[in-house]
Nucleic acid binder design. Structure first.
Length: 471
DNA sequence: ATGTCC
């Protein structure tokens, strides 16, 4: 790979010194072999944006995305910095929630086929798939302004679930009046649906525990059955991203005239357009928290009905979002707009925003693997707060583009490989199976090893898949 | 990711 101007700073830390219009350095946390040149070009572009602070960062799962790379973290000064839809991603608050099933694991294993089947029947999955449940416009507004809390009030889950969700499942700086009618129309029938692409629902087993004490506090033990939900804000968030990319393009021509890449379209955070996008984006973030909450409720119903067992929430994280946070930069506390696109918040022990239960451990971090590979539960660290604006990786990261994967892999082979590992799969589309094949992704074990070794999040447990459901 | 192009 011909990466120019990249310096090895230490193991897994590579720095690209600022040149040209870059305002800060770019830093890539990865092993050299897997760094993709196009994605490095993107992180260098991000470093040119107004008000960027300290450095533009890339996590070990970095790969090419719309404008900003996926696996990217960029923090902007709240006063003279910007907010960019491309720095959040189209699937606003795409994220992961981990659940644990109470009762003996063999009960689930012996009934796996029926459990997967029932989950498949209970949770709408696939492109454009609608929910049976219809919410009124008034309810919908409250859901996108109050997030998981509102759907819990409507009967989808328990009050206790809330402290097990990042930001308690609600981002307050939101305003439904900044959401288009079209976004509402697309979103109103999709609450409680999984979607397609890399979204999935997986039944897993805790195969290994690296830190017994922390695992116990988080609520997992070796041998337990977990369920992982990976989904986001569906057509609702997608439409909000689309709307504001266009609005910023039409209304902020002068501000955006010197962009190295049109896809980096952005607005000054404190400007009208910046605030409008921020408040609409947060509606989508709340929608996604509510979506994962409703899906949790549907999963609980299946496990209760089929096996008579309860399901608890371990944690729910966002990995496509921009947030206002306080961080210490060069010894000074500053208010920043932190963009995490394919990156997970990883706040450490003692952080003020965490609930009591996680004050000792740091916040739980969930890093899912690709279909048929392991997923990890970790905790955030002080080191992440010092080094990465409190961030870590979000997954395996694509190695092959969707088109490449479709060309190079066969559905049959992917299915046979899953079968040979004893993994049950229910999938809506054949196309999805090849696009999401393990071979299309980097090695999640390696990504997790790197973030753990860097100390920006620490391994707690590893879960291996038993059954998976996909769009 | 996505009513896989307005």
């Amino acid at each position: 790979m011909a990466l120019s101007n990249i310096e090895k700073e230490s193991k897994y830390i590579y720095r690209i010194r600022k040149t040209g219009s870059m305002k800060v350095d770019a830093v890539v946390l990865s092993d050299y072999e897997t760094i993709d040149e196009d994605a490095v070009e993107q992180i260098k572009n991000v470093a040119t944006l107004p008000g960027i602070v300290h450095y533009a960062l890339a996590m070990p799962d970095i790969h090419w995305g719309y404008g900003f790379p996926i696996g990217g973290v960029a923090a902007f000064d709240i006063e003279d910095g910007v907010i960019s839809p491309g720095g959040v991603g189209f699937d606003i608050n795409c994220g992961v929630r981990m659940l644990v099933v109470e009762g003996h694991s063999n009960l689930v294993k012996d009934n796996l086929e029926v459990i997967i089947q029932r989950l498949y029947e209970a949770i709408p999955v696939g492109v454009g798939e609608r929910s049976e449940k219809k919410f009124s416009r008034k309810e919908f507004k409250e859901i996108v302004e109050k997030g998981a809390k509102k759907v819990i009030e409507l009967g989808y889950g328990y009050q206790d679930d809330l402290e097990r969700i990042e930001d308690f499942g609600c981002i307050r700086e939101c305003d439904f009046s900044n959401v288009s009618e079209e976004a509402f129309e697309r979103g109103k029938d999709e609450l409680g649906t999984l979607g397609a692409g890399n979204h999935f629902l997986e039944v897993q087993e805790v195969a290994e525990v690296y830190d017994e004490e922390v695992a116990k506090i988080l609520g997992v033990e070796k041998g337990m059955i977990t369920v992982l939900i990976h989904t986001g804000s569906r057509g609702f968030g997608h439409q909000i991203a689309t709307d504001y990319i266009k609005l910023m393009r039409d209304n902020l021509k002068e501000h955006n005239k010197n962009l190295p890449d049109k896809q980096l379209i952005n607005a000054p955070f404190k400007s009208d357009w910046g605030q409008k996008y921020y408040s609409a984006m947060n509606c989508a973030a709340n929608y996604a928290f509510a979506n994962r909450q409703i899906i949790t409720h549907l999963i609980r119903k299946v496990f209760k009905t089929v096996l008579g067992v309860n399901v608890r929430v371990i944690y729910d994280i966002a990995h496509n979002i921009a947030k206002v946070e306080e961080h210490v930069v060069d010894g000074k506390k500053r208010k920043l707009v932190v963009h995490r696109k394919g990156a997970t918040r990883a706040f450490g022990p003692g952080n003020d925003v965490l609930p009591e239960i996680f004050k000792r451990t740091g916040q739980p971090v969930i890093i899912p693997g690709s279909m048929g590979t392991a997923s990890y539960l970790l905790v955030g660290t002080k080191k992440a707060e010092e080094m990465t604006f409190g961030s870590t990786a979000h997954g395996a990261g694509r190695a092959l583009g969707r088109r490449e994967a479709t060309r190079e892999l066969s559905t049959e082979r992917v299915l046979n490989e899953l079968k040979s590992k004893g993994i049950k799969i229910m999938a809506k589309s054949k196309k999805g199976i090849v696009e999401e094949a393990p071979e299309a992704y980097k090695d999640v074990d390696k990504v997790v090893q790197i973030v753990d070794e860097l100390g920006i999040s620490l391994k707690v447990a590893k879960c291996i898949p038993l059954g998976v459901m996909k769009g």
